[in-house]
């Protein structure tokens, strides 16, 4: 085999290109750790110390690195150098919130929302979270209601957070919290697990025993494998001093385990469950 000169040069060029590209891509995509990226940004800042964009970018990296003080310093420096971008104002509020300086966070997010941001769902959510931390639960609820009503794609976490605020504002207000869960189930799907679990907790905490048992039955009927749910229901029945029903539930749990496919029977979770069943049975 031989190479013509041109081909050889092309081959060398190609090899060089690959080597160079490897090196470059290692830098561009090698987000190996945030420290490296922060160092790189620091180097860029040393070359362009008046570039507010660089301080903002390094601030974001510090924020991800959970170095909130440094992030805040960079954001403020970016602002002092002329960065008037709305995003910066939001980040200042966010980093204050993350650092636990809720008063400063509120001040920042309020001014952000005043400047053409009143319909910004993400900012309203942050405002609600800040108000919650400040104990201003009514205002927090009001802000979060806006989030619930306007967010394009709600998550179960949003509904749960809203419930937390409702109960923080008035821990007796289980009805409103349950309403929020029900509306969440309508929005996200009737079987959304984390909402159904919270519904169960709310029913139990508010002493609605029969409804709580119905909720356990919902899980029993909805799920293919029921052994864990039978045990959980038995625990609750034992807790509310209904031992016979608890025993029935435990027997159903044991029966379900006995009928499990062999591949599940020796799994650690099942072995542990059997121990728990045995222990609870002994207590009843």
């Amino acid at each position: 085999m031989f190479y013509k000169k041109g081909n050889m040069q092309n081959g060398i060029k190609k090899a060089l290109f690959i080597v160079m590209f490897s090196l470059l891509s290692a830098q561009v995509f090698g987000h190996g750790d945030l420290t490296k990226r922060i160092n790189e940004k620091t180097r860029e800042i040393s070359e362009s110390p008046k570039d507010f964009r660089l301080y903002y970018e390094r601030g974001l990296l510090y924020q991800q690195h959970i170095e909130y003080t440094k992030a805040q310093e960079d954001y403020l420096k970016s602002r002092s150098l002329g960065n008037t971008d709305k995003a910066l104002q939001y980040r200042i509020a966010e980093v204050n919130y993350l650092a636990g300086d809720y008063n400063a966070a509120l001040k920042s997010i309020t001014s952000y929302l005043e400047v053409d941001g009143s319909s910004d769902v993400k900012a309203k959510k942050l405002e609600a979270q800040i108000l919650f931390e400040l104990g201003a639960y009514k205002k927090s609820l009001y802000a979060y209601r806006y989030v619930i009503d306007n967010m394009r794609d709600l998550r179960p976490e949003d509904i749960l957070e809203y419930c937390d605020i409702i109960l923080a504002e008035n821990d007796k207000n289980q009805v409103a919290a349950l309403d929020a869960i029900e509306s969440g189930l309508k929005l996200l799907g009737p079987n959304t697990l984390s909402l159904q679990l919270r519904k169960l907790d709310l029913l139990k905490n508010s002493g609605q025993i029969e409804k709580a048992l119905d909720q356990y039955n919902y899980f029993l009927l909805e799920y293919d494998r029921r052994e864990f749910w039978y045990y959980k229901k038995a625990m609750y029945l034992a807790e509310i001093n209904r031992p016979k029903e608890a025993i029935i539930s435990l027997k159903l749990a044991t029966g379900t385990i006995d009928r499990l496919d062999m591949k599940f029977k020796n799994m650690n979770a099942i072995l542990k469950l059997k121990e728990q069943i045995k222990s609870l049975e002994a207590q009843l």
Binding site: R155, E157, G189, N191, T192, L193, S194
Partner: peptide, 8 residues
């Protein structure tokens, strides 16, 4: 599977 209510 089990409904998560989210695409995350």
């Amino acid at each position: 599977g089990t409904p998560s209510g989210t695409e995350a």
